Amino acid sequence: MIHVSDPSVTAAAAALEEPGAVVLARPGVLVEAGPGWFARVTEAATPTAPAPALRDVGRDPRRWPAWWWALLVGLGMTGAGLGAAAITLGPVLLWYDRDYLGMTLHELHAANHHLVHFLQHDRITMAGTMVAIGALYTGLAVGGIRRGWPWAREVYLLSGAIGFPTLFYFLATGFVEPLHTATTIVLFPMFVAAVRRAPHAPRWHLAPEGPEPERRRALVGQLLLIVTGAGLFAGGAVISVVGLTGVFVPTDLAFLGTSAQALEVVNPRLVPFVAHDRAGFGGALMAAAVAITLLSVWGWRRGEAWVFWTLAAAASAGFLPAVVVHGAIRYTDFIHLAPVYFGIALTGTGLLLARPYLCAKASPRPKD
């Protein structure tokens, strides 16, 4: 039995090389090492296999590996988010929106001159979150699932298990959006294929431990990203509940200069229409938050630059459109935007602290 008294993954892995060795870590070691220490030690002590040959895969989808399907879902989410943004910045309403409401864009503007901008702000924020999810899934597919990390599949699975069922929010809002439904119908079978396919043989190659000050700064950055992800999940849950019940928060009504009852008088379907966008955004935010939190908890490895760039891309796609669209429509209430500003500060600080650690040059890996 060997007692480990320092947080070095290398020391624990070396101890495990002795046949029959049992390694015990003191509580202080686990605190200093941060989340995922046992997994990192196991990975360091586990022989890796060469990259699986893909020459026989061909064009037959039945032979495609799991990470190809996961990548397709990520790219599909990104494309859907960009498409939603293009629609919002262009016609705003599609034919089925107009048919459901029985109103044109000009009639909405005439009913309340802030209403169209309010719809745009909800939908742009939702589109940014969809692109963020796409970035997270793409990173998990290429950087994680492709290389056989077991936790990468779990992150992908748990995030999707929250995101896809939010389609059924329509049971509460009463509005079925054809484009949202079609996107889910196309992507969900790919998601299932990604999580049901046999995982790749592991082929990770961990970078050396590196300087202790660098690791400790990255540990603080990891904590900040975990806090951000947890906060986003709580925010998404609140937004979902609000979207499925009261729909508007006080700052929304102050911006619109009206009440929910007044909007219902204008058109009884107007509030359910807004509720669909609001609740859908909350569900997407929870799915993104789960991926951010678990990627930060389980994926923190020195030299794994893809983790840094995946989180940075997701943060940029999620936060920046929200700030820009609020400024563009002059919905700049500080209390309303405070969670966004706080999230940007935490994420930016966390990524800056962790960049030297995550993006450290690793030893050569087995070639694909």
Rank of each mutant, 00 (worst) to 15 (best):
A11E: 12
P19R: 08
G20V: 06
V23D: 06
P35A: 04
W37L: 10
R40P: 00
A44S: 07
L54S: 11
D56G: 12
W68K: 09
W69A: 14
L75T: 09
T78I: 10
G81I: 01
L82D: 05
G83N: 09
A85S: 05
P91V: 09
L93Q: 01
Y96M: 10
R98F: 01
G102P: 06
A111D: 05
L119M: 15
I124Y: 06
M126P: 00
A135F: 13
G139R: 03
A141K: 02
G144I: 09
L167I: 14
Y169S: 13
G174D: 02
E177P: 07
I185W: 13
P189I: 04
M190N: 05
V192P: 03
A194E: 07
R197T: 06
R197L: 07
P202D: 05
W204L: 13
W204M: 10
H205N: 15
L206V: 04
R217M: 12
V220M: 09
S240V: 08
V241C: 00
V242K: 04
G246K: 13
P250D: 04
D252H: 08
D252P: 02
V266Q: 04
V271T: 02
P272N: 00
G280L: 07
F281D: 03
M286S: 13
M286K: 10
A291N: 09
I292N: 13
T293I: 06
T293N: 08
V297S: 03
R302N: 04
A305E: 12
A305Q: 11
A305C: 01
V307W: 06
W309E: 04
L311E: 08
A312F: 10
A312K: 03
A313S: 14
S316N: 04
G318I: 02
G318P: 01
F319E: 05
F319H: 09
V325P: 02
H326N: 15
G327Q: 12
I329V: 15
R330L: 10
L337W: 05
P339V: 05
P339C: 02
V340Q: 10
L352I: 15
L353K: 11
R355F: 11
K367R: 14
